[in-house]
Design a binder for these strands. Structure first.
Length: 868
RNA sequence: GGGCGGUUAGCUCAGCUGGCUAGAGCAUCUCGUUUACACCGAGAGGGUCAGGAGUUCGAAUCUCUUACCGCCUACCA
C-alpha cells in the first residue's frame, strides 16, 4: 500500500496521505482491542457517546480528539486500549428531531401500522401525522441509523482510534436489557421506589424532570400587590406576588416569626380574595422580612418552598394546574376546595378553567382589578425562574407518580467517591462535590416519553378495577429486555391486560441519564471479558455534565457494585465563539468538523485540539489550524530531506546507532532531544497531552532551524556516519513522538522511511524510551547550545547587513573560558560550515562569559544566481 | 447570596513546586531563492504580567485585598 521510495519529488497533500492511512489502519486492524491481555495491560476509556440528534459540531472533534491523543499514547506504551464508542440515540432530543424530520407525533393509544413508512418532506406544512408508539420508535431508528453513519465517517476522518467492534447504542437491545437489569438490581437493593408526590413538571413535553435537568432563567415578571382581609377584623395586609393565578390554590399565609409588622396576625385567618378561602396566617422562617412586603402566600405549588411547607404542615393539596399547563376544573365547596362563599368562588374560577397559566394570570388580574384587590399597577421585575433545560415554559410542580432513586441518603458516599477519583484539572472535583452537597431531591428517573428504555414493570389490577401501584410486578431477569406494553408478566396472560384481576404496563420510559450512567457497564458487556471490571482508567467528558453524566455514573457504580467507575475524570473545556460566548448551533455561521478537516487536513485539526489544555475553555481560532498545517508540512519536508541524506550516505540501513554516533555535536543534540522526550513522557503520563505536544513541537522546530542546519554539510561529507546515524535516530524519535497527535503524517513518514521498512503501523510501535538515549551516550547539551547561539549571532549579523545567509564570514571573535573553548573546539567544523566561515576566521579570546564579540562578513560577496 | 476558575504582547495562548534580560504562534515591519520546505527562511519592534498591599536576597508565580470577566450553585413570594 505504501510506496517503496521516499516521496522526494512530492509535496505534502493531506487528502492522499489521510486516505492512505485510514485504509491501512482498517486493513491492519490497528485499533482492535486485545481481549487476551490482562487488566493491568489494558487501558480502559469510558468514551462519551455523542447524542445523535442532528450533526456533530467542532466541540465534539475538539474534546474527542484530546481523548484520542491519550489513547494513542497509551497504545504506544504497550498496553491494549479498550476504547469503545457509542451513540446516545434514545431520549427526548431524538424524539424531537424525528417529530420535525418526519412530521409525525407519537400517540401511544394508536395500534401499530405495519405499512407505515416515515418520509421526510422539505417544508412540510401539513398537520403532524399521529402514529403508534411502535411506528414512532421505528422512525427514530431509521433516522438515528443514518445520522450515526455520518458521525462514524467524521470520527474516522478525524483519525479517532476507537475499536468499532465495541460500538454500542443507548437504544439497542443490549443496552435496554442492561438498563432494566440495573433497575431491578437497585429496586431489589431498596434504592428505588415509586412515589406519588409533587414533582417538577414540564407542561410542554408533559414529563417529569430531574433536578439536574433544571436551569434558572432570568425572565421578566410582575409583582402584583394584593390586599388580603383578615377574618373577623378590619385588618388588611398587602401581599406582593408574581403568580396571582395561583390564588385559587392558596393554602396558607406566612411571615417571618420576628416580623413586627405581622406578629399580631399569627393565629388568625386571612380571606383569599375572589375565592373567599379562609387560610391560616402562620410564622415561618422561610419568609424573608425585606423581600416584597415580607408576608406571602403559600400555594400548591408556586415553588419548591411551597412544596416543603405543604409537606411539613400536612395541608391539603389543591392541584389547579393540569399536566398540560392549563387550569383544571375544580369545584369549590367540596374538599379540599373549601370556601366561605363557594358560589362566588366557583363563579370566579369558572372564568379561568381551560386557560393556560399565562392566560389565567391576565384574566385573574382583570378580576382582581375589578374587585379592588389589586393595589396600584403591577410592577415589572426580572427574576429567576426554573425551566427544563430543553423547554420554553416555566416548570410547574405537579403531583404525579414517579420512580425515584434515593440519592439523598448517599450524599456522603458520593462525596467520598468523588474524592477517590482523580480530576483533571483538579478543581473540577469542587464542581462535583458542590453538586453532591447541594442535592435536595432524589433522582426522578421516570419520563412520560416514548423513545427510551421502558420500565420492566407492570401493576396488578384489583378486582374492583383499580390499579395497585404499591405492588409492582417486576420482570424476571431472564425475560429481559422487555417492553411491558407488549410483553406479559410471568403468571399472566395477554387477555388479562387492562382487566380487573389482571395487569397493566408501566407506561413510562427511563430518564436518558439512567441509561447513559451505565456506559462503563454497557461497554464491559460488549467486551464479554471477565478480566475487565470497574473502575476504568479514564472518563473523558465536558464540565457542563458533571452534575448529570459524571454524577449519575458515579452513583450507579456505587449503588450497584460499591466502586468508583473510573480512576480519573478528564474534563475538557468548551469551544467558545471568537466573541467568547459559548458556541451554539443556532448562531448561523456553522463550521462543521468535516468542513475543517476538508480545508486544513485532519492532522491540522487534531493539532488545534491537542494544543488546548484540559478544562480550559478556548476561543475558536482557525489560525491555530494553519499553524498545525505548517507543522505537518514541515514534518513532511524535514523527513523528505533526511531520507534523501540517508539515501546518499554510506549508512543506509537501520543499525546499532550507538556504534556510529561518535561526534560530540551529535551526542550533545541527542541530549536536548532526550530531555524533551523525557518531559513529554512525564506530561503524557499525567494526561497533559498539551504540554507533551509543546515539548515535542518546539524541539522539532529547534531541530529544523538549528541542528539540521548545523549537521547537513557534515551529513553530505565523506565522514558522515555519525551525523547520518544521529539523524536517523532523531527522525525515528520524532515520528513516534508525533504519532499520537498527527497520526496520518506520522504513519506516512513511518511507512516511507528509507532505512527500515515495516509492515506494522506506527501506532502499534513503542513510545521512544528515554533510557535508549543513555545507550547512545547522549552527551552534555552545552556544545549544542553554544554552537546554536554562535550560529544565531552569525545569522543576525548577515541579516543586519542585508546579506544572504550564504555570505562568507571572514572573522568571528568569541569570548569564552578556557574550559568552554575546549568544548567549542569539538564543534569547530560545524560552526565553520553552518556560518560559511573562511579558514581561520574563528578566533577566541579568553574571558569569563560566552560572548560573540565580532562578526565580519565578506562584503564583496555576490551570490551567483541559483540554478533552478 | 455561596463556590470555582480567569485577567501575561494588537489577537490566541504557554510560563511546573518563587531564580538568567517574561516566552510561542499569528498579526505588523525589514531583509533573504541557503543540498527539504514560499504551506519557506533570517531578523526587528511590541508587555507597569488587571490595580494595591505584604512575605522574601529575589514575585507573573506565595499571602491578603480591590476591580472586572466567565462558569457552577441557591426556596425564585
Amino acid at each position: 500500500m505504501y510506496k517503496d521510495s521516499p516521496f522526494l519529488d512530492d509535496r505534502y497533500d493531506a487528502v492522499t496521505i489521510e486516505n492512505r492511512g485510514k485504509k491501512f489502519w482498517e486493513e491492519k486492524k490497528v485499533y482492535q482491542y486485545d481481549a487476551t491481555r490482562s487488566r493491568q495491560d489494558t487501558f480502559m476509556i469510558d468514551t462519551p457517546p455523542p447524542t445523535v440528534s442532528g450533526s456533530l459540531h467542532i466541540g465534539h472533534i475538539f474534546s474527542y480528539t484530546q481523548t484520542d491523543v491519550i489513547a494513542r499514547f497509551q497504545r504506544m506504551t504497550g498496553k491494549t486500549v479498550f476504547y469503545p464508542i457509542g451513540w446516545d440515540d434514545n431520549g427526548l432530543p431524538t424524539e424531537r428531531r424525528v417529530q420535525n424530520y418526519f412530521n409525525i407525533a407519537c400517540n401511544p393509544n394508536l395500534p401499530y401500522d405495519p405499512n407505515f413508512k416515515p418520509e421526510h418532506i422539505e417544508n412540510d406544512k401539513s398537520p403532524r401525522k399521529e402514529v403508534s408508539r411502535k411506528n414512532f420508535i421505528e422512525a427514530c431508528e431509521i433516522l438515528t441509523n443514518s445520522d450515526e453513519k455520518i458521525f462514524e465517517d467524521v470520527f474516522k476522518n478525524a483519525g479517532h482510534s476507537y475499536d468499532w467492534n465495541l460500538k454500542y447504542t443507548t437504544i439497542g437491545n443490549d443496552t435496554i436489557k442492561l438498563s432494566q437489569e440495573s433497575f431491578i438490581d437497585l429496586y431489589e437493593k431498596g434504592y428505588i421506589q415509586s412515589v406519588e408526590a409533587p414533582t417538577m413538571w414540564d407542561t410542554t413535553f408533559q414529563t417529569a424532570v430531574a433536578q439536574a435537568e433544571v436551569e434558572d432563567r432570568e425572565v421578566e415578571g410582575f409583582f402584583h400587590d394584593l390586599k388580603f382581609k383578615v377574618e373577623g377584623s378590619d385588618d388588611t395586609f398587602i401581599i406582593s406576588t408574581t403568580r396571582p393565578e395561583l390564588l385559587p390554590a392558596c393554602i396558607g399565609i406566612v411571615a417571618h416569626p420576628d416580623d413586627e409588622r405581622y406578629k399580631h396576625l399569627f393565629g388568625k385567618k386571612a380571606i383569599v380574595p375572589l375565592f373567599d378561602i379562609a387560610v391560616d396566617i402562620v410564622p415561618s422562617e422561610h419568609a424573608e422580612i425585606d423581600k416584597g412586603t415580607g408576608i406571602m402566600m403559600v400555594c400548591t405549588f408556586g415553588d419548591s418552598a411551597d412544596v416543603a411547607w405543604w409537606k411539613k404542615t400536612g395541608s391539603p393539596l389543591k392541584q389547579i394546574i393540569d399536566m398540560d399547563g392549563r387550569m383544571m376544573k375544580v369545584q369549590y365547596g367540596t374538599y379540599p376546595f373549601d370556601s366561605l362563599n363557594p358560589e362566588k368562588a366557583n363563579q370566579n374560577y369558572s372564568q379561568l378553567v381551560g386557560l393556560t397559566t399565562k392566560q389565567a394570570k391576565a384574566k385573574i388580574v382583570e378580576l382582581l382589578r375589578a374587585d379592588g384587590t389589586l393595589q396600584g399597577e403591577p410592577r415589572r421585575i426580572v427574576h429567576p425562574v426554573k425551566f427544563y433545560e430543553k423547554g420554553n415554559l416555566p416548570l410547574e410542580f405537579v403531583s404525579s407518580r414517579q420512580w425515584f432513586i434515593h440519592l439523598l441518603p448517599e450524599k456522603e458516599a458520593m462525596v467520598k467517591a468523588g474524592r477517590e477519583i482523580g480530576w483533571k484539572p483538579a478543581h473540577m472535583q469542587h464542581r462535583f462535590e458542590e453538586w453532591a452537597l447541594g442535592l435536595n431531591q432524589d433522582w426522578c428517573i421516570s419520563r412520560q416519553r416514548f423513545f427510551g428504555v421502558p420500565f420492566p414493570v407492570w401493576y396488578p389490577v384489583n378486582a374492583d378495577g383499580k390499579t395497585d401501584y404499591d405492588h409492582p410486578i417486576l420482570a424476571d431477569r431472564k425475560q429481559l429486555p422487555v417492553d411491558p406494553a407488549v410483553d406479559v408478566p410471568n403468571g399472566y396472560k395477554e387477555e388479562q391486560r387492562g382487566c380487573a384481576g389482571g395487569f397493566v404496563a408501566d407506561k413510562d420510559v427511563m430518564d436518558t441519564w439512567a441509561t447513559s450512567a451505565l456506559t462503563p457497564q454497557i461497554a464491559l458487556d460488549k467486551a464479554k471479558n471477565p478480566n475487565l471490571s470497574l473502575p476504568f482508567d479514564v472518563r473523558p467528558q465536558a464540565h457542563d455534565i458533571i452534575r448529570t453524566w459524571a454524577f449519575y455514573t458515579v452513583a450507579k457504580a456505587l449503588l450497584h457494585s460499591k466502586t468508583i467507575p473510573w480512576k480519573e475524570a478528564l474534563i475538557s473545556g468548551f469551544i467558545l465563539d471568537p466573541d467568547r460566548k459559548k458556541m451554539s448551533k443556532s448562531k448561523g455561521n456553522v463550521i462543521t468538523p468535516q468542513h475543517l478537516i476538508d480545508s486544513y487536513g485532519a492532522d491540522s485539526v487534531r493539532y488545534w485540539a491537542a494544543r488546548a489544555r484540559l478544562g480550559v475553555d478556548t476561543a475558536f481560532e482557525e489560525q491555530i489550524m494553519s499553524q498545525g498545517k505548517k507543522l505537518v508540512n514541515k514534518i513532511f519536508n524535514a523527513c523528505k530531506f533526511v531520507f534523501n541524506i540517508v539515501a546518499n550516505s554510506s549508512l543506509k540501513e537501520e543499525a546499532n546507532y550507538a556504534q556510529y554516533i561518535q561526534n560530540p555535536m551529535d551526542k550533545s543534540w541527542l541530549r536536548k532531544l532526550s530531555d524533551s522526550l523525557e518531559y513529554a513522557t512525564k506530561s503524557f503520563n499525567q494526561y497533559d497531552y498539551a504540554a507533551a505536544l509543546d515539548a515535542i513541537e518546539s524541539r522539532f522546530w529547534d531541530f529544523c532551524d538549528n541542528y539540521l542546519e548545523i549537521v547537513k554539510s557534515r551529513a553530505y561529507s565523506e565522514d558522515n556516519t555519525s551525523a547520518v546515524a544521529s539523524l536517523m535516530k532523531t527522525i525515528d524519535t520524532f515520528i513516534l513522538a508525533f504519532a499520537p497527535f498527527v497520526p496520518f503524517i506520522a504513519e506516512e513518514v513511518y511507512q516511507t522511511r528509507t532505512w527500515k521498512k515495516g509492515d506494522e503501523s506506527v501506532h502499534n510501535q513503542n513510545w521512544p524510551k528515554v533510557e535508549d538515549f543513555e545507550a547512545l551516550q547522549a552527551g552534555d547539551s552545552s556544545l549544542y547550545d553554544t554552537v546554536s547561539m554562535i550560529a544565531s549571532e552569525i545569522r543576525k549579523a548577515k541579516t543586519a547587513a542585508n546579506k544572504t545567509q550564504r555570505t562568507p564570514v571572514v572573522k568571528v571573535e568569541i569570548e569564552a573560558s578556557e574550559k568552554l573553548r575546549s568544548v567549542l573546539e569539538m564543534g569547530k567544523g560545524d560552526i565553520e560550515n553552518v556560518g560559511r566561515l573562511t579558514p581561520d576566521a574563528l578566533t577566541f579570546k579568553e574571558g569569563k562569559e560566552l560572548k560573540v564579540l565580532d562578526v565580519q562578513l565578506d562584503m564583496d560577496f555576490v551570490p551567483e544566481p541559483k540554478k533552478k
